[in-house]
Design a protein around this nucleic acid. Structure first.
Lengths: 352, 352
DNA sequence: GAATTTCTGATGTACGTAAATCAGAAATTG
DNA sequence: CAATTTCTGATTTACGTACATCAGAAATTC
């Protein structure tokens, strides 16, 4: 049988009350006695029954999720997944609220983080914009001992507890490895469509892609990055221009959002380029099927949300996280291994 | 506040004891009263607090995992993950035992299942051999109301509750889609190395691969399947023979185990074929790095084990499973997106 | 050594559910 | 309608931990 607090008390020769004081870091225990109890805990290998503790505490976890507003399909899918988690909150003792802020807007995000701080949540998950003011706001939360998890896009130089997202450098390299192999024997440059260099995931993907092409497929030219700010209209214009001025483009890597515009431009120019994009949305799914896009790298929003919640809970309880379990995978979809067709895109699952 | 059993009692105008009888399907409640209680449960939206219930019941879940013996790297990695789960069993209220049986041996596996049945476990996870006697044994378990989850390889015509593994037909199609794109512009046939047609995962991968090549890349010849029984020595011999008699082989798809033999043969023949294999093991990892293998499709053993346990628990408690969460992804590894280098291969994580 | 202050023990209640007991009410049987 | 049998209610204990209260013991201070 698993040892209980009673066993500690017996082993240490103290009362239950003292054990409780030690376990919950309450004052009123002499150093020598505390030592004795801690030794007993060590010796009999006691581990607190979190379920029972949470029951006794009637613990609930108020969490705040902060993500960009706008009509970015991936972000709206992410929001759907958060709402799905809210539906489960009764079972999971969570109490999740969603806050949206304009995309790529550091000050607004920092402000939202400071706002969140005032309500003393048990944890915050945030799709980060990589700027110093955001890092500072995150650090203020950490100073208050509020766990922070970055979601989808990470944040440099901050004390965030965890990043719930894919390895974006690896994603860029994966795209490059696939692209290089797809283009074998076909000359022509590669165009890159990004959203904004203000978010770290885009920067990391770009860097991973570029470095791998340079080292593994030398001689393959990469055109200057098109920065479309995840806006379909802008993306369409930029890609259209590029296809017009470089009719020999062999490959296109779209590492951000705004793929609707990319797809429109591809259609308009009847480009034969091999295309790799990110995030499986209704639009990219259709383009895959139509043969306009060759491969889609996807991160599962549902998995990321669930992982963020698990990690926030663990951090709030001061528990260790099973890091292997929280690794978010990079899904690679080709036309032929798409998950079920009909369902709403947001319900396509993940993990765990 | 979430409603409790007391609220049901109050709402239905009955006592706690009666509510308990209804909730736990105990006898001694008149049909009319039972109805009344069930209506109250419905009305106030009561959901049992599983944590509290498990605490009260001092519930433990004795599970049995049955997997093939032998030195198959993937299966040994799977076993390592199960042992990791055993290390967590104190926290998870599980009590897991591992049983190994010879690979590809239906009768032995059926026997092991019947043996497992005698100990009345709360659930069984099994790497299935797809044969009628195994299906029958699984059905006997189900008759006893013991949940059964197939692991890695599924079982036709049985009443197993769940399959914790990848979509193997999709895996085969993914391999074919990649292979077709890798080989663009390069003539030559494709060789396929399989383990055994007695396991369903191999059959499904083969079928998926073959059908996609035929429809999407017509004209690409596929050589007769080499059945190497997941044995490195046999695989090396078969692949060596094939490379000798067909020096023009452009691609090789290894859909089972025994990749050590495949790699040895590739080295010996200095083949320039594009190679796609399954499962990231120390051997395939090294071959990827050395450029002998182009891509590895991987299923995360850790994720599969954790998923199997979650599902078995849910089934044992008569709870619904979050199917999106239990979808096992197909990881695609190229030389350039390998997860951390140094760690033991078995600790590379998953999920969840 | 008396008066404090600081520690420790004993005890009880709570969390939400499970499970058992026993008495009494209701329904059924003869 | 009395005698059973079958339900139902009331009550208690338990699971493992958290938390509060109060009395008494031990250490500290003067």
């Amino acid at each position: 049988m698993r040892p209980t607090v009673h066993d500690i008390a017996a082993a240490a020769g103290v009362s239950l009350a003292t054990v409780d004081r030690v376990l919950n870091l309450r004052p009123g225990v002499r150093a020598a006695t505390r030592e004795k109890v801690e030794q007993a805990i060590e010796q009999i290998g006691f581990v607190r029954d979190v379920a029972a503790a949470n029951l006794a505490k009637s613990r609930v976890y108020p969490f705040i999720f902060i993500l960009p507003s706008g009509d970015n399909s991936f972000m709206r899918g992410l929001e759907t997944e958060i709402r799905a988690a809210i539906d489960r909150s009764v079972f999971e003792r969570t109490q999740i609220s969603i806050v949206t802020v304009p995309a790529f807007d550091g000050p607004a995000l920092a402000n939202a983080l400071d706002q969140a701080r005032l309500s003393h949540p048990a944890g915050v998950a945030v799709v980060a914009v990589d700027s110093p003011e955001v890092a500072a706001a995150v650090n203020r939360l950490r100073t208050d001992n509020i766990p922070v998890v970055t979601l989808v896009s990470d944040l440099a130089g901050s004390a965030r507890d965890h990043f719930a997202g894919i390895d974006n450098a690896a994603a860029g390299r994966t795209a490059a490895g696939l692209m290089g192999r797809f283009l074998r024997g076909r000359p022509g440059p590669i165009a890159i469509l990004a959203g904004s260099m203000l978010v770290r995931d885009h920067r990391e993907r770009l860097e991973g892609f570029r470095s791998l092409i340079e080292t593994e497929f030398p001689g393959r030219m990469i055109l200057p990055v098109l920065e479309g700010h995840d806006d379909p209209v802008e993306a369409e214009r930029l890609v259209g221009q590029a296809l017009k001025s470089h009719p020999d483009i062999a490959g296109i890597y779209s590492l951000g959002a705004g793929n609707r515009g990319l797809i429109a431009a591809l259609k308009a120019h009847q480009s034969g380029a091999s295309v790799i994009a990110h995030e499986l949305t209704p639009h990219t799914r259709k383009a895959l099927k139509d043969g306009l896009i060759d491969a889609v790298l996807n991160q599962d929003a549902g998995h990321e949300v669930r992982s963020a919640i698990r990690v926030l809970k663990a951090k709030a309880d001061g528990q260790a996280v099973l890091s292997a379990q929280e690794r978010i995978r990079i899904d690679i979809f080709l036309k032929d291994n798409l998950p079920f067709d009909d369902a709403a895109p947001a319900s396509e699952g993940d993990d765990i």
